[in-house]
């Protein structure tokens, strides 16, 4: 949990957002559905490097939706790591920003799945909790079936996607990180 003492407002204590890490890295996905869990494998890979906890917070969001709303507010950058199915070849590494994410939002019914990241983002927007910048890095899945472990096509691209994620964080936070992945 982020530091920051609670301020009681109308009988309810609220966290002080000033003390939050400016960068949130949110891994999403289901580890029990093979490639669906790739976002969490990416989270592992990226968070294993040395980061300043006051600058970057890593959260394993699983398949939760609204339950993650509490992590959203007060960020300069939120980087979502997830399986991204856009119909490309399995293993394709995607990086989505601004207009591309808006297009996804517009085309998809966000009410069908609470666990859907898009609903989380829509609700954050309603509350004014959106980050200044939102980036999604992910890999096109091959197998989304009951089972543990990634397909070969997705596994082969883990390092590339993790390096891309590190670059996104570094370019935003101007943090000193080791140069190699």
């Amino acid at each position: 949990m982020t530091a920051g003492s609670a301020e009681v407002r109308d009988g309810v204590p609220y966290e002080d957002l000033e003390a939050r890490a400016p960068v949130l890295v949110l891994g999403l996905g289901n580890l029990l559905l093979q490639d669906d869990g790739v976002g969490l494998r990416l989270l592992e890979a990226v968070s294993a490097r040395e980061w300043d906890p006051a600058a970057v917070e890593f959260v394993d969001g699983g398949t939760q939706g609204l339950a993650l709303l509490g992590y959203m507010a007060g960020r300069k950058l939120t980087l979502v790591l997830d399986a991204v199915g856009l119909g490309a070849a399995p293993g394709t590494v995607h990086q989505l920003r601004g207009a591309e994410i808006e297009r996804l939002r517009a085309h998809r019914s966000t009410t069908a799945h609470e666990g859907n990241a898009l609903e989380l983002l829509a609700t954050a927007r309603l509350l004014g909790d959106e980050p200044e910048e939102l980036v999604i890095v992910g890999i096109e899945p091959e197998q989304v079936r009951t089972g543990v472990g990634l397909s070969d096509a997705v596994s082969a691209q883990l390092a590339t996607a993790a390096a891309m994620a590190v670059e996104v964080i570094r370019s935003q936070s101007k943090l000193q990180v080791p140069p190699c992945v």
Binding site: L33, A83, G85, G138, P141
Partner: peptide
């Protein structure tokens, strides 16, 4: 069953 893939398709209600 919580599946979680971001995708472009819409769904009819």
């Amino acid at each position: 069953c919580a599946s979680h893939v971001i995708g472009p398709d819409g769904e009819t209600l």
